[in-house]
Design a binder for these strands. Structure first.
Lengths: 214, 214
DNA sequence: TAGATTAGCTAACAACTGTACGCTAAATAA
DNA sequence: TTATTTAGCGTACAGTTGTTAGCTAATCTA
């Protein structure tokens, strides 16, 4: 299981994954990568690819899983920063943007294949985003004590807005990105203020209902 | 200019455009279409393609322009519905969703190429969305009398949320879509409520400032 | 040590791609 | 009428693709 052979195998598997990642760019989508290109970059024969993955789609799904992992690690870091003081919204947005700057191609992969031609891809990425959003909802619920439903809706909207800002950032200069961050933060704050209003309204409604009952 | 020849030419040009559109599907992206496939579907020789477009990208940009046009027409219809009574938010969301249901492949094209590998494509689609958003901002400004900046930020966020809901809807059943519409409407209402709070706050700040000045 | 397993290789395949070149026949211009 | 323009065609080429089949040599197992 951990013999010399399986170590070597794991190494070439990684080489394939890294080769695919290296070829990704603004001008090159995963869908446009060919099996032969990847093996060429990885330094193995085309036919050897099948010793590691059934096809390119399988490799791609592995990439998505790894991306999700990276994203989750990032979120943990962000929460640490928040607990040690600082605006939750600002810290989250800035952390996310930093992730994008550092992992442009991974983010591009998620962005593109989210509406790509492979149902499995789309499902995998939707799962990652849902996971991302659910953790944020838990956080919102814990901090603001808002009911689960409100927290979920807010989290979903926030994730969408932040992801979208990330997508826009990809084609922007550093200065433009800074502006974008501020705009996104304002959007999230407005959303947050709106949710708290709706929450109060629904609570008032419940109160008047229970008063009427007495 | 309007001779027999140029009429015929326009017809085959349309045939090419329609052929491309017909080949688009959940499993088939524009980027994956080949020039030969398109000409085959259009019923002309591969080499004749160049009589009409410089390359596939040029054809694609034409598709994007046409899609934007369709979208703008849709917006006009939506505004008519709103003026004849009904919730602006609900009407807008439902209209947009109807557009997606009727033009799945066009919407997929916009969605995919928005983060695709062609800079020109990305720019063209960003332009269309910005146009879309700006018209909404004008509408918000006219109806709510909110300042331009607030209206712009709100419109941007709304467009993002609605576009995103559309993207999610593509892989959903009719029942799921209905739920999604309700969720999106709630998100937009919350955002709207939040914007109005921020507006009041900034107005209060201005008032107290001018009071201090007196 | 002897036998089984297997990662990686080469060669080969049919299928496809974009595009250059030159021709034809019809529409247009003179 | 005659000359020019041009949409569409067939042929051709070099390049790429995914995948099959069978071999080699190293590693693992017993």
């Amino acid at each position: 299981m951990s013999g010399n052979r399986s170590i070597k195998k794991e190494q070439t598997r990684r080489a394939l994954i890294d080769a695919a990642l290296n070829q990704l760019s603004a001008e090159r989508s995963f869908a446009s990568l060919s099996l032969r290109e990847v093996t060429r970059e990885a330094g193995i024969a085309p036919t050897s690819f099948y010793r590691h993955f059934q096809n390119m789609e399988a490799l791609g799904l592995t990439l998505v899983d790894e991306s999700g992992l990276t994203l989750r690690q990032l979120m943990r870091q962000a929460r640490q920063r928040i607990e040690s003081g600082g605006s939750a919204i600002r810290t989250s947005v800035e952390t996310f943007m930093e992730f994008i700057s550092r992992n442009e191609n991974i983010f591009r992969l998620l962005l593109r294949e989210r509406s790509g031609t492979s149902r499995d891809f789309r499902a995998a990425i939707a799962r990652e985003i849902a996971h991302f959003s659910l953790e944020l909802a838990d956080y919102i619920e814990a901090v603001t004590r808002r009911g689960g439903e409100f927290a979920r809706i807010q989290a979903d909207a926030m994730v969408i807005l932040v992801f979208n800002a990330g997508a826009e950032a990809l084609d922007m200069t550093a200065a433009q990105r800074k502006q974008l961050v501020e705009k996104t933060i304002r959007q999230l704050r407005m959303l947050d203020a709106g949710v708290s209003i709706y929450l109060k309204r629904s609570q008032n409604r419940e109160n008047s209902r229970s008063n009427a009952g007495n």
